[in-house]
Measured scan of single mutants.
Amino acid sequence: KFNKERVIAIGEIMRLPNLNSLQVVAFINSLRDDPSQSANLLAEAKKLNDAQAP
């Protein structure tokens, strides 16, 4: 279950337009470290993406 959620979360994070490459890598590394947190990490990535919108 967590592996599928992690793959989906990674794909979504990679498509967030307002994150820089270091932020994307940090979120992906966090997902690798704890796949059970996929939903929480994706939500945090989306919040950061929205906050950094031009």
Score class of each variant (00 low, 15 high):
residue 24 V to Q: 05
residue 49 N to T: 01
residue 36 S to A: 11
residue 10 I to S: 03
residue 13 I to T: 01
residue 6 R to E: 15
residue 50 D to V: 10
residue 22 L to E: 09
residue 37 Q to R: 13
residue 47 K to V: 07
residue 33 D to M: 12
residue 3 N to E: 15
residue 50 D to Q: 10
residue 17 P to M: 11
residue 46 K to Q: 05
residue 54 P to K: 08
residue 45 A to P: 01
residue 1 K to M: 13
residue 22 L to N: 06
residue 4 K to M: 04
residue 30 S to T: 10
residue 26 A to S: 11
residue 34 D to G: 03
residue 8 I to V: 07
residue 3 N to Q: 10
residue 41 L to F: 08
residue 44 E to T: 09
residue 43 A to F: 09
residue 12 E to L: 15
residue 33 D to T: 13
residue 46 K to Y: 12
residue 27 F to A: 02
residue 27 F to E: 00
residue 11 G to L: 09
residue 6 R to Y: 15
residue 52 Q to W: 04
residue 50 D to E: 11
residue 1 K to Q: 15
residue 32 R to F: 15
residue 38 S to L: 12
residue 42 L to F: 04
residue 38 S to E: 03
residue 22 L to R: 12
residue 2 F to C: 15
residue 31 L to W: 05
residue 31 L to A: 03
residue 23 Q to H: 02
residue 53 A to K: 11
residue 38 S to V: 14
residue 33 D to R: 13
residue 44 E to K: 13
residue 49 N to K: 01
residue 26 A to Q: 10
residue 10 I to G: 02
residue 26 A to D: 05
residue 39 A to F: 14
residue 31 L to R: 00
residue 9 A to D: 02
residue 22 L to C: 13
residue 8 I to K: 11
residue 47 K to M: 08
residue 20 N to G: 06
residue 17 P to V: 09
residue 16 L to C: 02
residue 14 M to C: 14
residue 36 S to H: 08
residue 47 K to L: 05
residue 27 F to I: 05
residue 42 L to E: 02
residue 13 I to N: 00
residue 13 I to V: 03
residue 6 R to A: 15
residue 18 N to F: 11
residue 10 I to K: 03
residue 9 A to M: 06
residue 18 N to G: 03
residue 29 N to V: 10
residue 25 V to C: 13
residue 43 A to K: 10
residue 28 I to F: 05
residue 30 S to Y: 11
residue 4 K to G: 09
residue 54 P to F: 13
residue 18 N to H: 12
residue 28 I to Q: 02
residue 43 A to P: 01
residue 22 L to P: 05
residue 21 S to N: 10
residue 40 N to E: 08
residue 53 A to F: 07
residue 8 I to H: 06
residue 53 A to M: 08
residue 23 Q to T: 02
residue 7 V to D: 15
residue 29 N to C: 15
residue 10 I to C: 10
residue 11 G to E: 10
residue 42 L to N: 01
residue 37 Q to N: 08
residue 3 N to L: 06
residue 51 A to S: 09
residue 24 V to G: 01
residue 44 E to P: 01
residue 4 K to N: 07
residue 19 L to K: 00
residue 20 N to P: 01
residue 10 I to Q: 07
residue 41 L to V: 13
residue 27 F to Q: 00
residue 31 L to D: 00
residue 19 L to M: 02
residue 15 R to C: 10
residue 24 V to N: 01
residue 50 D to W: 11
residue 35 P to F: 11
residue 52 Q to L: 05
residue 17 P to E: 05
residue 8 I to G: 03
residue 23 Q to M: 04
residue 4 K to Y: 08
residue 1 K to E: 15
residue 49 N to Y: 01
residue 47 K to Q: 10
residue 49 N to V: 02
residue 7 V to S: 07
residue 28 I to E: 02
residue 2 F to R: 11
residue 11 G to C: 15
residue 44 E to W: 14
residue 41 L to G: 01
residue 50 D to I: 09
residue 50 D to A: 12
residue 38 S to N: 15
residue 16 L to P: 00
residue 51 A to H: 07
residue 2 F to A: 14
residue 38 S to Y: 15
residue 21 S to M: 10
residue 39 A to G: 10
residue 46 K to G: 02
residue 10 I to L: 08
residue 25 V to R: 14
residue 34 D to K: 08
residue 31 L to S: 02
residue 41 L to K: 09
residue 30 S to H: 09
residue 8 I to N: 04
residue 25 V to A: 11
residue 32 R to M: 15
residue 49 N to F: 02
residue 18 N to D: 02
residue 7 V to C: 15
residue 8 I to F: 12
residue 25 V to S: 10
residue 41 L to P: 00
residue 29 N to T: 08
residue 44 E to R: 14
residue 44 E to G: 05
residue 30 S to K: 12
residue 48 L to H: 02
residue 28 I to K: 03
residue 16 L to Q: 02
residue 33 D to V: 13
residue 37 Q to W: 06
residue 53 A to R: 08
residue 37 Q to F: 07
residue 34 D to M: 08
residue 9 A to H: 03
residue 22 L to S: 10
residue 41 L to E: 02
residue 29 N to D: 05
residue 48 L to S: 02
residue 2 F to H: 14
residue 23 Q to D: 03
residue 24 V to F: 04
residue 28 I to N: 02
residue 40 N to D: 09
residue 38 S to G: 04
residue 1 K to G: 15
residue 36 S to D: 04
residue 26 A to P: 01
residue 51 A to R: 12
residue 49 N to P: 01
residue 41 L to T: 10
residue 29 N to E: 07
residue 28 I to H: 02
residue 43 A to C: 10
residue 23 Q to F: 02
residue 45 A to F: 03
residue 36 S to N: 06
residue 26 A to W: 13
residue 45 A to L: 02
residue 26 A to T: 08
residue 7 V to N: 08
residue 49 N to R: 01
residue 8 I to T: 04
residue 30 S to D: 05
residue 18 N to K: 02
residue 21 S to H: 10
residue 19 L to S: 00
residue 49 N to I: 02
residue 53 A to T: 10
residue 22 L to W: 12
residue 38 S to P: 04
residue 46 K to C: 05
residue 10 I to A: 06
residue 33 D to S: 10
residue 29 N to S: 13
residue 22 L to K: 11
residue 22 L to H: 12
residue 11 G to Y: 14
residue 51 A to Q: 09
residue 37 Q to H: 07
residue 31 L to Q: 00
residue 29 N to G: 05
residue 24 V to K: 13
residue 54 P to R: 08
residue 9 A to C: 05
residue 9 A to Y: 09
residue 1 K to V: 05
residue 43 A to S: 12
residue 1 K to I: 14
residue 36 S to T: 07
residue 51 A to N: 07
residue 37 Q to P: 03
residue 20 N to L: 12
residue 51 A to I: 10
residue 23 Q to L: 03
residue 9 A to T: 09
residue 44 E to S: 09
residue 14 M to F: 05
residue 22 L to Q: 13
residue 26 A to G: 08
residue 6 R to L: 15
residue 13 I to Q: 01
residue 29 N to W: 09
residue 42 L to P: 00
residue 48 L to Y: 04
residue 28 I to V: 05
residue 49 N to E: 01
residue 34 D to N: 10
residue 51 A to L: 09
residue 23 Q to E: 02
residue 15 R to S: 07
residue 9 A to L: 09
residue 21 S to V: 11
residue 25 V to Y: 13
residue 17 P to G: 06
residue 15 R to D: 03
residue 20 N to E: 04
residue 54 P to D: 07
residue 48 L to R: 04
residue 25 V to I: 13
residue 12 E to T: 13
residue 24 V to H: 02
residue 45 A to E: 00
residue 36 S to E: 09
residue 20 N to S: 12
residue 6 R to W: 15
residue 9 A to I: 08
residue 35 P to R: 04
residue 30 S to E: 07
residue 14 M to N: 04
residue 7 V to A: 14
residue 27 F to N: 00
residue 11 G to M: 14
residue 30 S to Q: 13
residue 52 Q to S: 04
residue 32 R to D: 15
residue 13 I to F: 03
residue 13 I to H: 00
residue 18 N to A: 03
residue 19 L to G: 01
residue 54 P to G: 11
residue 6 R to V: 15
residue 9 A to W: 09
residue 46 K to F: 09
residue 33 D to K: 13
residue 37 Q to L: 10
residue 1 K to Y: 11
residue 38 S to F: 14
residue 1 K to L: 05
residue 54 P to E: 09
residue 48 L to C: 04
residue 48 L to G: 01
residue 13 I to G: 00
residue 32 R to E: 14
residue 51 A to C: 10
residue 7 V to R: 15
residue 8 I to P: 02
residue 45 A to H: 01
residue 31 L to P: 00
residue 50 D to C: 09
residue 37 Q to G: 08
residue 43 A to W: 10
residue 37 Q to I: 08
residue 48 L to Q: 04
residue 12 E to C: 14
residue 54 P to W: 11
residue 46 K to L: 08
residue 48 L to I: 06
residue 43 A to N: 08
residue 51 A to T: 08
residue 21 S to C: 15
residue 1 K to C: 15
residue 24 V to I: 12
residue 40 N to S: 13
residue 39 A to I: 11
residue 51 A to Y: 10
residue 2 F to L: 14
residue 36 S to M: 08
residue 43 A to I: 11
residue 23 Q to V: 02
residue 12 E to N: 08
residue 17 P to S: 09
residue 5 E to P: 03
residue 25 V to P: 01
residue 36 S to K: 06
residue 46 K to I: 09
residue 32 R to C: 15
residue 52 Q to V: 04
residue 35 P to I: 07
residue 3 N to D: 15
residue 5 E to T: 05
residue 40 N to K: 14
residue 35 P to C: 14
residue 19 L to I: 04
residue 15 R to P: 00
residue 20 N to D: 08
residue 30 S to F: 13
residue 8 I to L: 11
residue 51 A to E: 09
residue 24 V to C: 06
residue 16 L to G: 01
residue 33 D to L: 14
residue 22 L to Y: 13
residue 20 N to Y: 11
residue 50 D to G: 08
residue 32 R to V: 15
residue 29 N to Y: 09
residue 10 I to F: 04
residue 51 A to F: 09
